[in-house]
């Protein structure tokens, strides 16, 4: 049983991953190259925390020249590896969210069928991207950030944990309060998310300085949000479709005969 859930998650992840790979290739790579071009006058994408030393020490392998930078193998270009990275990102999200988490949490997720898949996807998005973005919104290359890289990695990981906790608490509150009516249940489920937003305000701010036009940064963020929205929508859609298909085949297989009238007269 667990195995079939994992396989379904993997399939959904493959669909979303390939889409994200295409997204990276067609939209994100040119956009990031443009950002590096725009920021080029100011020395490009220097880290403000000393990790820039790594890049400086690599002899011209700095962030100014990403278009020509080669990847791990030295043969495949870095933008191509990023496309593969997009595919793996989708696969990872599919297996973890719709393979593992969905298997264990399915009985506790409100709704039925496709609604369950959509709620799982929403929870996944809040955990992986939404909650961390409250503190650390997506940045194009070339933006100098006040917090050090290490601090930001910890913040990102911490906000993922906070986002996951908020989703689980919301689910718990919803299930607990459902007997008292949908309004109560939804209000109860909203409380953890309010706390999450409150937490984001309490955490240290991360002022940025940039030479990029504000409109470009806004467009970049919209693009990133769009990309991740596509990923989660495809994950939920594919997963719901695979689940429904799986149910359908087992039902018809068990019944053995098609219901007498597939089109009930409900008009």
């Amino acid at each position: 049983m667990l195995e079939s859930y994992l396989v379904r998650g993997l399939k959904a992840g493959l669909v979303a991953g390939v889409a994200l790979g295409i997204f990276v290739a067609v939209l994100a790579n040119p956009m990031i190259a443009a950002a590096e071009g725009l920021a080029g006058d100011h020395g490009g994408h220097h880290a403000s925390d000393g990790s820039g030393g790594h890049h400086a020490g690599e002899g011209g392998h700095g962030h100014g020249g990403h278009e020509s930078a080669s990847g791990v193998l030295g043969v495949v270009s870095a933008p191509l590896i990023s496309v593969a990275g997009g595919v793996f990102w989708g696969l990872l999200l599919g297996v973890v969210t719709f393979g593992l988490a969905f298997y264990f949490l399915e009985p506790a997720i409100p709704g039925t069928g496709a609604i369950k898949s959509a709620i799982a996807a929403a929870g996944g998005f809040v955990t992986v991207s939404g909650a961390p973005w409250l503190v650390l919104p997506p940045q194009p290359p070339g933006v100098e950030q006040a917090l050090s890289t290490d601090a930001r990695l910890w913040l990102y990981a911490g906000m993922m944990l906070a986002g996951l906790s908020a989703c689980l608490l919301a689910g718990y509150a919803y299930t607990r309060l459902r007997d008292r009516g949908r309004g109560h249940a939804l209000a109860g489920a909203a409380v953890p998310f309010c706390l999450l937003v409150g937490l984001a305000f309490v955490l240290p701010a991360n002022p940025t300085t940039q030479s990029l036009p504000a409109a470009f940064v806004a467009a970049f963020r919209a693009q990133v949000l769009f990309g991740q929205a596509i990923v989660w929508t495809l994950l939920a859609g594919t997963h719901a479709w695979l689940s429904a298909e799986g149910d359908g085949t087992t039902t018809t297989g068990a019944v053995g005969s098609v219901p007498s009238d597939p089109r009930p007269s409900s008009d």
Partner: peptide, 23 residues
């Protein structure tokens, strides 16, 4: 999370595209 320059630079665009924090 890997910040090792070679790995990091290769996945640089994917990280920015996914909105994952980057240096």
């Amino acid at each position: 999370f890997v910040q090792e320059p070679l790995v990091h630079d290769s996945l640089h665009n994917a990280r920015h595209a996914a909105g994952i924090t980057c240096h």
